[in-house]
Design a protein around this nucleic acid. Structure first.
Lengths: 133, 133
DNA sequence: TTAGCGAATGATATATCATATCATTAGAAT
DNA sequence: ATTCTAATGATATGATATATCATTCGCTAA
């Protein structure tokens, strides 16, 4: 028999819960503090390991431009993340628009820049931040 | 008379030169070392300050997903950067495709997610890295 | 020409983000 | 129960980035 993988351990679901409850991107050391407040004695290394696991299983997305992590809202379905970030207020939205996603990657292919299995992070200023400049 | 701004100082053009010569993204501390090899006694703080300046003047792009910086190849013309990065080999290309760029931002507007003045970072695996998996 | 001003840089310290390494524990297969 | 592997613990350190205050530079105006 194939050995069962303990895919979702207690710690992994703890950290995923933190992100799901936050409903917005959370930084790794803030996740660490949240986990400790819930009584778990873990360290940064554990948090990063678990984030790597969750990300590679498409349960969590990294938001590179703000060094944070957010739960994927549609983790059941196959999805191609488009992450939209306001660079000023940091409000972040995950967009699941497979048409837009495909048009981006098809265009890259036309240009000889084929990439597979990617994510897209779109940065700019949201309307209210734009107004307040 | 309006006071002239010393927009491009010796250090700023030094660091821009480092990036132009590299023809690929360079990390901040590698820029620091390159500058020191050229005889300039500067620190990380100076490098980051100058990178901020160059980025806000559209001479340099930050590549968030690899914590690096690259010279903009078309800094004379108005441009909308699309940065394409292989997450495995880190090969990075700047794409100036205003049609694709506009279609992305128009689609965001349709979805009520208007953003202005943005950059787009597209991550995936390039063909050779895809093959070697 | 030089006095004065604001921008740029120097200098130092420290905050923030992330990983390497080796030891130990937990859980499934046999 | 034993054994094997994946997960986590524990510790240290590496890598990335910014805050703060002092000093210098370069332009402007007198």
């Amino acid at each position: 028999m194939t050995k069962e993988r303990p895919a979702m351990t207690k710690l992994r679901s703890l950290i995923l819960d933190v992100l799901v409850e936050a409903k917005e991107p959370v930084k790794a050391y803030d996740i660490l503090e949240a986990a400790r407040r819930k009584g778990f004695k873990i360290t940064a290394a554990t948090v990063y390991r678990i984030l790597d696991y969750l990300e590679s299983n498409a349960l969590v997305h990294r938001v590179s431009s703000i060094n944070a992590f957010m739960a994927c809202l549609n983790s059941e379905i196959e999805h191609q993340p488009l992450i939209v970030v306001c660079q000023r207020c940091r409000k972040t939205t995950e967009l699941n628009d497979s048409g837009l996603y495909l048009s981006i990657f098809e265009r890259l292919n036309e240009l000889g820049l084929s990439l597979t299995a990617g994510s897209v992070e779109i940065r700019g200023l949201c309307p209210s931040c734009q107004d307040s400049v």
